[in-house]
């Protein structure tokens, strides 16, 4: 009974945590990009105002939409994004809530579900703009899955070849930083995989230059074109939670160190320091992979997204994998 109660508490706690952090990070992103474009930019809490406003607006149902699916898609997207947080190490607050019940492969699938829900919702909206956006979203998903899966499989293979139990567990990956197990050649491979992951993140989050599914100027909002009010707010919250999840995943794979591992601190202070350090790491990674790219680049055509991810980023990921393989053999 207490177990169930604890789980329910974790669900609400983590949902609140993910939404709050996600909105703060997207506020930071908007501020930083505005400064880079020599604008003043919105206040830090602008995304909160946006979501609060959307929650209080009318939620319209288009005339030729499929009502049930159209209304369910945003709920599924947010639920999947929050579920993802249960399997990720979130820095300082201990092991993942459902540690041992799911691993990196499950996280890969859960990362797909918000995008899939958007695709289904886009098709259910009955707008041709949303249909084109949904097709582009599917193509984008197929594109970034290859490099993302290569990165995660490389890590799992490395841990498995060292004889670590449960090499696919994200908790194990966080506890065993890969940098300590590779030589010079392998480190080069890990650096390449790190850059691959930084380039996969904006595609996963649908940000510029990989935002062709939304494409405000050509598709009028694309996949979200028919969504308004509460449903649109739920999609925005799902994206915010997914931002935190992608940041946490990158930290788990590439920068899993903690402050308390370096300096001896009393337990509660150490936990707080670890948590703040985790936030700094996530913010740092999102700054490079989301904000800088967004300010520096224009939108890529959908065909360039596919070529970019499969040909260039995909082969870079394979080169990283080969370097780590060679490092282990030699």
């Amino acid at each position: 009974m207490a177990d169930v109660f604890y789980s329910i508490l974790c669900v609400f706690g983590l949902a609140f945590y993910g939404i709050f952090l996600g909105l703060v990070f997207s506020g930071v992103d908007r501020m930083v990009v505005a400064r880079m474009q020599s604008r003043i930019g919105p206040p830090l809490f602008q995304p909160f105002f946006d979501v609060l406003k959307l929650l209080n607006k009318q939620d319209m149902l288009p005339a030729n939409a499929v009502p049930g699916i159209f209304r369910m898609a945003p709920v599924v997207a947010l639920a999947a994004a929050v579920t993802l947080l249960f399997y990720l190490p979130l820095g300082g607050i201990g092991a993942p809530v459902l540690e041992g019940r799911g691993d990196a492969i499950l996280a890969l699938y859960l990362l797909l579900i918000p995008g899939l829900a958007m695709v289904i919702g886009g098709f259910a909206g009955g707008s041709p703009y949303a249909a084109i956006g949904a097709q582009r979203e599917m193509v984008t998903m197929i594109s970034y899955e290859l490099p993302l899966a290569t990165v995660i499989l490389t890590f799992a293979w490395k841990l498995a070849s060292l004889g670590v139990a449960q090499p696919f567990s994200l908790g194990v990956m966080a506890a065993q930083p890969i940098w300590g197990y590779v030589g010079l050649l392998g480190s080069l491979g890990v650096v390449i995989l790190f850059f691959v992951m930084l380039l996969v993140t904006p595609g996963e989050l649908g940000r510029i230059p990989f935002d062709s599914p939304e494409a405000e100027t050509e598709l009028a909002g694309g996949i979200l074109v028919e969504y308004s009010g509460r449903s649109l707010a739920l999609f925005q919250l799902a994206m915010a939670v997914k931002t935190v999840a992608m940041g946490a995943l990158m930290v788990t794979l590439f920068l899993p160190w903690n402050v308390s591992g370096w300096i001896a601190l009393p337990a509660p202070v150490g936990a707080v320091a670890d948590f703040l350090f985790f936030l700094v790491k996530v913010g740092f990674l999102l700054f490079f992979s989301v904000s800088v790219l967004r300010a520096a680049m224009a939108r890529l055509r959908i065909s360039d997204v596919v070529t970019g991810y499969w040909k260039w980023i995909g082969s870079a990921a394979v080169v990283g994998l080969l370097l780590i393989l060679l490092d282990a053999k030699g």
Binding site: G41, P42, D50, A220, G221, L224, E226
Partner: peptide
Amino acid sequence: RLGVKIVGSPR
């Protein structure tokens, strides 16, 4: 900076 955003869809 005032929270105004130009959007692509009347929805």
